[in-house]
């Protein structure tokens, strides 16, 4: 799975999160930070993680989530890692 394909899928997920304003989803790059750039309330990160698991048909380990950073790159890396783990 290509990184851009994952970012596109991620944006699809973020579009379903009511508390993210649509204009914040324009021009998202790997450096975009969920908390700083998209103003996602930290309480909503759990919902996003659960939606990502559904979207990409994977299940994260608790440690994966505990260690997760808050940029798009961190999430893309993790998805690729978990996919590779099988």
């Amino acid at each position: 799975m290509e990184r851009q394909e994952i970012i596109d899928g991620l944006i699809e997920v973020l579009k379903t999160v009511r508390m993210i304003e649509p204009e914040k989803l324009v021009g998202v790059t790997e450096e975009t930070d969920f908390l700083a750039d998209m103003s996602v309330p930290s309480s909503q990160m759990i919902a996003i993680v659960a939606k990502v698991e559904q979207k990409f048909d994977i299940e994260f380990e608790d440690d994966d989530i505990d260690d997760l950073g808050s940029t798009v790159k961190d999430v893309v890396d993790l998805i690729l890692k978990v996919k590779a783990r099988g």
């Binding site: 309480s43 990160m45 919902a47 659960a50 608790d62 989530i65």
Partner: peptide, 9 residues
């Protein structure tokens, strides 16, 4: 399922 799938709220 994991606890997070019951919703964060």
């Amino acid at each position: 399922r994991k606890t997070r799938h019951s919703g964060g709220h």
